[in-house]
Amino acid sequence: MSEPKSDPVIQVKDLYKFYSIGSNRVKALNGVDFTINRGEFCSIVGTSGSGKSTLLNMLAGLEKPSKGQIVISGHHIERLNENQLVKFRREHVGFIFQSFNLLPTMNAVENVALPLTFRGISKKTRLAKAAKMLDLVGLKKQRFHKPTQMSGGQQQRVGVARALVVQPEIIFADEPTGNLDSNTSAEVMNLMKKIVREQNLTLIMVTHDNHLASFADRIFHIRDGKILKIEDNTNKEVLNDEEI
């Protein structure tokens, strides 16, 4: 499989994020530069507190950078106001949460259909689309289950379906398998990878698990708010399997 390297979908230049707590100044991100191309699956790994979530949140437009540029599909998102950011997310971004974050009052289909509601899609169409998406993640039977009536793995698959249903260009996932056991994690990872490949989506995933990171095409190693190295995994897939 060969990626068209000439089609960058995310460009990050000289990105900084500072938090000041009292007189303390925490450098959560300390000068980050990289480019991600369309259809790539990238994982971000690093120790706890290294700045992975901070980076992801900024890419998704949930937090403002202190300094630097983030260009996604041609939009300088560091320049957008909150209203525009919501619109940007609605049109370009899907999000998978670590704690699933399904709405407890809604069943699986309704949860998946929710982002379509915000796009003003009619009830009939959005429920049909959501049902199709649930089939794709293998939850045909659990369609009308409430989140509390599903296992963690099933809930996260609903989460994946919800992120995918709006057909976003980019999917962000912050430790999507953090609350799952290793077998279920692998299942969910394979599912995500499969769909992302099929639909040529860009997936950016944060994890602190090296094994899960190795599902990705490229692995960004972060420490103390800086990129330590970017590991190209496409040619080493065989090698990785041997290592395990």
Binding site: V86, K87, R89, R90, L114, F118, R119
Partner: peptide, 10 residues
């Protein structure tokens, strides 16, 4: 959550 999922402020 609904804000992350793209529900507008209005």
């Amino acid at each position: 959550i609904i804000k992350v999922l793209g529900c507008s402020l209005g």
